[in-house]
Simulated assay, not measured.
Amino acid sequence: MAANATEPVAAFAGSLGLEVKLLPLRDPGSKGMVARRNRFFRQRFVPGLDYRSPADFNLSWLTGCGLVANCAADLR
């Protein structure tokens, strides 16, 4: 049985230009990958910031990547 993201989640991700990936249940490798990505975002996007629009989020993302050398390499 294939699971799909709910319509509101898919719409939110689509408005930000993101893709929702549903991972296999009880997969320790996936759990570690998600934890590393969450830590990456938590460390680089200070909690409490207020993004006014998807464009504002994207601008913050691009600016942040420009300040951190090899930021994409941290997502592995």
Rank of each mutant, 00 (worst) to 15 (best):
N38F: 02
L22H: 02
L67R: 10
A69T: 15
R44F: 00
N4A: 04
N58D: 09
A35I: 08
M33C: 03
G66W: 11
D50A: 12
V46S: 11
Y51I: 04
P8E: 00
E19Y: 01
R76N: 15
M33I: 06
N58R: 13
N4D: 06
L62N: 12
P8I: 01
L22Y: 02
L25R: 07
G17Y: 10
A35R: 04
S53I: 01
V9L: 14
W61M: 12
A73S: 13
F57W: 15
Q43F: 00
K31E: 05
L22T: 04
R42V: 01
R42K: 05
A73P: 03
L18D: 14
A55I: 03
R76W: 07
R26Q: 08
F12V: 09
L67A: 10
A3V: 02
V9W: 08
A55W: 00
L75M: 12
M1Q: 08
S60G: 07
L62K: 15
G48M: 09
L49C: 01
G29V: 02
E7D: 14
L59D: 14
P28K: 09
E19S: 04
M1G: 11
F12K: 08
R26Y: 11
E7C: 04
F41R: 06
A2K: 12
V34Q: 09
M33Y: 12
L16C: 14
R36L: 05
L49T: 09
E7Q: 12
G17I: 09
L75V: 06
E7S: 12
G48K: 05
G64Q: 14
V20S: 04
F57G: 06
G32Y: 14
L59C: 11
P8R: 04
G14V: 07
R39F: 03
P47S: 03
R36A: 10
T63L: 15
G64L: 14
A2C: 08
A10K: 10
P24K: 14
L23T: 13
L22R: 03
G32D: 15
V34Y: 11
A55H: 05
G66A: 12
S53Q: 00
V68A: 13
L75R: 12
D50G: 08
A5H: 03
P28F: 06
A11Q: 09
G29T: 02
N38C: 02
S60Q: 08
R76D: 14
S60I: 03
P28H: 11
G32R: 15
K21R: 14
R37Y: 02
A11P: 00
G48T: 03
L22Q: 05
Y51H: 10
R44I: 00
G29R: 15
L23E: 15
R39D: 09
D27F: 04
G29D: 06
L23A: 11
P24I: 06
L67V: 02
F40H: 02
A72Q: 15
V9P: 01
G17H: 10
G66E: 12
E19H: 04
A3K: 06
D74S: 09
V34T: 06
P8Q: 04
P47M: 01
V68H: 12
A35P: 07
R36I: 07
P54Y: 00
L62A: 11
L49Y: 03
F45W: 05
A3S: 08
D74Y: 11
A3W: 01
Q43I: 00
L25D: 13
L23N: 14
L23R: 12
